[in-house]
Design a protein around this nucleic acid. Structure first.
Length: 821
DNA sequence: CAGTGAGCGAGCTTCCGCTTGACTT
């Protein structure tokens, strides 16, 4: 038994560090925080100076048990959690829970995993920094207070089950406010002109008129005056320019680039990065630091020199601009620069290559460019055309990596321009003018939302992806596509001395995979902004972070900060609870022609709905839920009234009624006691009896057993986790190895037998932990053995179907349980 | 598994950050 026990946060890290420290050290992992406030209830003794009630997190009981027993055997314990607020708290909780007072205990930190850094850490141990721990307690308690006091107000005033929090509510606010900007945006048209010129040597190039025209008349008179105009080069400028590589990846920039370049949602980026990390191919993927270790910089240097040559190498380190960064880790980089392509599947390979290229590029020379601007005048009007060109003189880092341009208006042609002289006459090939409309600000993507949150200092690398999941799960926002509308454009063209005009059309406002707020998201946001302005303030986190920093530096007591915050906050909560009206986002749609009553769209107890009549009326009001594709803000009276046709009887099929309706799981067709979901994108109001019967038949066919095994039916289907076959109430995933649409009887047999084998192995493994063994006996029987107890099972007892509890009971009573089917 | 909508009141929901497997259909 080694005399030293080192505890870090992640098991992959533990493995690496173990290699550096050798046999005198055992390195174990705490798997992050081991202690937290209770899952239910406030868990804070507010009257007793906000004393937090800590408990070991349920999923960490096992880890704690293991660490406790290892601690007992070790002589010296080294707490090596990350060097930031949360890491310090983890060490402190380990210290308390593992009862390390009586042990020789050291706190050590390192923010890169290299042999040198770790040895250096071990030589320079310190004590737990209580101030830093207090800053974490303040962070944790404040988040709990805000979340658990504001959320219940939403349950009461809007809808049960909703949530609010320091991070998620601001994320929703960003999306809602952007949507409102887009809705109220009025596009303005103006005429923009481009021209195609030819040089004396007849080389072609494109130029843009530096001015735009508001009206058609101005545009027309301009192009008329160009008819007989002579164009020549007025001015020529050439300027050298540089472009520098971007810093290596942090979590946030990795998510953005993977989204732009590979089209990954942030959750996929993180899942794939985790796989690369666990395979030892990249460093830790949750970081806000752009820093590279010295070892990494020199490894990159030699890789670049070898691959691209000396002149491409320019070793450098980057510093964080972001104030809120805690920099407990290095930037995300390959662990071995000599490997330019790696990963177990295509997703991994593509992400790895992105990381490799970005990191390598960050250590390469700047690109040298030459920017050229040609100004072109004419003798008939004072307007000026301009051509911009950019030539790469030396590519430098651009050889491996280019940032993705997110600027949608960057449509300037940055190509090579032909050589021209000042005063040179130019021929006009064509002048083309078209109306251009100003664009509304873009909707957020998952990745651009993360970028914005990071700029505001809200959230941490480990929470960006979960925050997006939260606001999607609460149905405050959806990731949606929008079709867009069509509008007309006036164009004017001058070619070979003749002017032609044409009206063309363009679609605008179409959007793909963007974050769009729902009715509930908008109502919740407006309510919170109205009543909890200070917490919804974009600067709220930045302000409390300042206090956390003051606490960490020992300048302020965390309990003082909490009192001064909580006093005002709690009064506000109380006041809103007592005085605020219910928020429903109500919108009047018109009058129901049948009853003459008012029709409104609003949020109800179960979400967005239509109500005909008022609750105070003699007759009860009528209610209908909105479809998931509809929204309070733009549903029409006609669409609303149609909803009251549900459930709709379509007619009969084989003497049974066919009906369509909407349920908890969306629109469906009902036939006998069967429910068939209507596929996404299909309008249930338009589903005919014919179509419904088609769906029913498809479902009947899909549900029909495809084979028999051991006298039981085998059926197949597709679930959340891909294609599966079902047999004896067991789901068996069908891997890509098999042709799912044409499974043979042998395939099915193979799949079931493999699964059974795996199940029994799993059971055996579980039992082995408890010291229980299984022995094969005669005539296909099995014996269960623990210590000296031996239990003989009946012949047809299926060992894989016994639970651990059942087996333990048998052992206790020393009797086999009753025969199980 | 494929409701409901007032108001009453039982008992539920909820936060952010640090980490992985286990496990789902």
């Amino acid at each position: 038994m080694p005399k030293n026990l080192v505890i870090v946060e992640s098991p992959a890290k533990a493995k690496t560090i173990q290699k550096y420290l050798g046999d005198d050290f055992a390195v174990e992992s705490s798997f992050g925080h081991i202690v937290d406030l209770p899952k239910k209830g406030m868990g804070i003794d507010i009257d007793n100076n906000f004393k937090p009630i800590y408990e070991v997190s349920p999923d960490k009981e096992e880890v704690v048990k293991k660490l406790k027993s290892l601690t007992k055997k070790a002589e010296v314990v080294w707490l090596a959690s990350d060097e930031d607020r949360e890491g310090e708290a983890i060490s402190w909780h380990l210290y308390n829970v593992l009862d390390l007072k009586k042990k020789e205990t050291h706190r050590i930190v390192f923010n890169e995993i290299t042999k040198k850094a770790i040895q250096n850490a071990v030589e320079n141990p310190r004590k737990i920094d209580e101030n830093l721990v207090d800053a974490q307690q303040a962070r944790r308690v404040l988040d709990r207070l805000v979340g658990f006091e504001v959320s219940p107000i939403l349950w009461k005033k809007i809808k049960p089950g909703l949530s609010a929090g320091r991070v998620q509510s601001v994320a929703v606010r960003l999306i809602v406010e952007r949507e409102k900007e887009i809705r109220s945006f009025k596009p303005e048209a103006s005429f923009k002109f481009t021209a195609q010129f030819g040089t004396v040597e007849n080389k072609q190039f494109k130029a843009i008129l530096t001015e735009e025209f508001k009206t058609y008349e101005e545009a027309k008179s301009f192009i008329e005056s160009c008819k007989a105009a002579n164009f020549k080069v007025k001015d020529l400028q050439k300027k050298p320019a540089k472009r520098s590589p971007s810093a290596p990846f942090t979590t946030s920039t990795l998510q953005q680039e993977a989204s732009l370049k590979l089209g990954y949602p942030v959750s996929r980026t993180m899942r794939v990065a985790q796989q690369l990390y666990e395979s030892g191919l990249i460093t830790y993927m949750r970081t806000d630091s752009v820093n590279l270790s010295q070892e990494a910089i020199s490894a990159a240097e030699s890789a670049i020199k070898k691959e691209f040559g000396e002149k491409y190498s320019s070793p450098r380190n980057y510093t964080n601009k972001n104030k809120s960064a805690q920099e407990a880790h290095e930037a995300i980089r390959p662990t071995n620069f000599a490997i330019s392509s790696a990963g177990g599947d295509d997703s991994q390979r593509r992400l790895y290559e992105l990381i490799w290229k970005r990191t390598i590029a960050s250590q390469m020379t700047n690109a040298d460019l030459e920017r050229t601007i040609i100004d072109i005048e004419n003798d008939r009007n004072a307007k000026m055309f301009q051509a911009k060109g950019e030539v790469i003189v030396f590519d430098g880092f651009l050889k491996v990596y280019q940032d993705t341009n997110t600027d949608e208006d960057a449509e300037d042609d940055k190509s090579l321009l032909p050589a021209v002289k000042v005063g040179e006459n130019l021929s006009v090939e064509e002048i083309f003018g078209t109306q251009k409309f100003t664009k509304a600000p873009p909707r957020f993507t998952e990745a651009s939302l993360v970028k914005k949150l990071e700029e505001l200092g809200i959230g941490r690398p480990s929470t960006y992806a979960p925050t997006i999941s939260t606001i999607l799960n609460r149905e405050y926002v959806i990731v949606g596509n929008l079709e867009g509308d069509v509008r007309k454009l006036q164009t004017i063209r001058l070619k070979k001395g003749a002017i032609t005009e044409k009206v063309e059309s363009e679609t605008y406002g179409a959007d793909r995979r963007k974050l769009i707020p729902t009715d509930i998201g908008i109502v919740v946001n407006d309510f919170l902004v109205d009543y909890f302005k200070s917490i919804l303030d974009y600067d709220f986190t930045a302000k409390v972070e300042e206090s956390f920093d003051a606490i960490a530096e020992g300048k302020e007591e965390w309990t003082d900060m909490m009192s001064s915050f909580y006093g005002k906050f709690h009064d506000n909560v109380q006041n809103v609870e007592d005085t605020a009206e219910r928020a429903t986002g109500e919108r009047e749609l018109g009058i129901d022609p049948k009853s003459g009553k008012t029709v409104v769209a609003r949020i109800g107890r179960f979400g967005p709905m239509i109500q005909i009549g008022h609750a105070d009326d003699e007759e009860k009001p009528q209610f209908a839920s909105l479809l998931s594709t509809q929204s309070i803000h733009n549903i029409t009276l006609e669409e609303a009234l149609k909803l009251f046709e549900l459930p709709k009887n379509l007619g009969e099929y084989k003497n049974e009624i066919v009906e369509v309706n909407v349920g908890r799981f969306g629109p469906y067709v009902k036939y006998k006691d069967m429910f068939v979901s209507i596929p996404k994108g299909e309008d249930l109001m338009e589903v005919s009896l014919e179509r419904a019967v088609e769906l029913i038949d498809e479902k009947l066919k899909a549900d029909a057993p495809i084979a028999m095994y051991d006298g039981k039916e085998v059926t197949k289907g597709k679930g959340r986790f891909g294609p599966f076959i079902k047999w004896d109430n067991m789901f068996i995933n069908v891997s890509k190895k098999y042709d799912f649409d044409h499974l043979t009887d042998e395939d099915i047999e193979q799949l079931i037998e493999d699964k059974l084998k795996k199940e029994s192995e799993k059971v055996v493994q579980n039992w082995e932990k408890e010291g229980i063994r299984i022995e094969k006996a005669r005539w296909g029987r099995h014996n269960i053995i623990k210590g000296k107890t031996k239990i003989e099972l009946m012949k047809d007892v299926d060992v894989t179907k016994l639970t651990l509890e059942e087996v333990q009971k048998m052992i206790e009573s020393q009797k086999p349980a009753k025969k199980k089917k």
